[in-house]
Design a binder for these strands. Sequence first.
DNA 1: GAATAAAAATGAACAATGTTCAAAATAAAG
DNA 2: CTTTATTTTGAACATTGTTCATTTTTATTC
Lengths: 221, 221
Amino acid sequence: MFKIKVVKTVTGKREEKKEVLRQALVKAAGHRISKLGLGGLRARDIAKDAGCALGSLYTVFTDIDELILHVNSNTLSKLGVVMEAAARRVDSPQDVLVALANEYLKFATENRNIWAALFDHRIPEGAGEPEWHVAEHLVLMRGITIPLARLLPTLNENQLAVQARILFAAVHGIVSIGLHGHFVAVPRRDLESQLTQFIKRIIVGYQSSSNKVDNIDLENE
Amino acid sequence: MFKIKVVKTVTGKREEKKEVLRQALVKAAGHRISKLGLGGLRARDIAKDAGCALGSLYTVFTDIDELILHVNSNTLSKLGVVMEAAARRVDSPQDVLVALANEYLKFATENRNIWAALFDHRIPEGAGEPEWHVAEHLVLMRGITIPLARLLPTLNENQLAVQARILFAAVHGIVSIGLHGHFVAVPRRDLESQLTQFIKRIIVGYQSSSNKVDNIDLENE
DNA sequence: GAATAAAAATGAACAATGTTCAAAATAAAG
DNA sequence: CTTTATTTTGAACATTGTTCATTTTTATTC
């Protein structure tokens, strides 16, 4: 049993403080978004909430967008946890898909603004979001792929990945438009049962022999 | 004494000019959004493109959001036209639904920014969008309801309306996430066939006797 | 047609907000 | 404790939506 001496600086006060500040800023931004939505976010407010000067924000993040990115990263992490927990509560692949969809609806309903920020946030101009953050969105796929593989045993990995994205996108669309008021919304109390019914229909479609998955080559995407 | 102004303005030059300016502003804003997206819209640019002073914009619209609203109104109108045309090109309700979905994908692909503005635009604070504009979104439903009624003959009008919204939302989600880069996207050339397959599966689900539409009371929404 | 009144167009000024930077404060090293 | 390096600070800057006093245009009256 040896101790590795990682101690170069005895205190390491600088990095420690910076990390504390980073967390405080992400937390403050998260609270603001939760309360007021992405549109209600102000650099000055975040700094005040986090107890630092306006300029300090820019010593930790290059701009507000990067800060929002980290808030979204946290949200995806939380979402991943509840989705995986939901998947574990049932057994059959059918039930898992239904449970995942309803858990997604539940999370979106109970965390409206912070969830909406995941999809409302737009990177300003040229370069898109960093690779690591794009990859984080895959937590939304992971839970879906496993039950899907059991329902569609003839698909290879790439084909499964595509089907998972399509199914997630459909569910996301229903939840998104269901909660947003673009249309006369589906009554909130019906949304859950409609979503369940929708998933069941898709599953029936998967199992229909007259409607097998096309054998399109998806290898080289 | 009071004079009643029984004026019949012979020329009506004022309203005419105002209408011309209104059109010019909407057109200019539309072009900017098409090229640069909602985020690239600047009041000063719009005014310059429309050939008026910055302040004139605010004599026609109360703010930029109202102008965007009118751009979106135009977009919905165009979308409605192509969707109805697409529906008329085929016969069976199955084919109509497939055609509508693919037409929607096509429109979104070919008019990315102006289409995205329909859903990206957020009204700033309290009061939501005006009633007349919310109602315009129903053009997206109209084409769907007719074939759906033939596939689901037991549903009443309200239930059909709900199913149409659910189906549209699912398609919209697939198109939206398919075109956006949140995830490693489904390859664009596969999106159309995936969408077609998806619609066919849903239709199979509709027709499955083991999965009838729940008899939830949807009357009082 | 000229004079007058009403309305609209104008663009400078204002306010809000993201970002930068020279100066002050703080931490690390000697 | 002194010196040096780094960080924090908040005033200043740049951009952008919106307003408003002034100017210009349009309509009405004689």
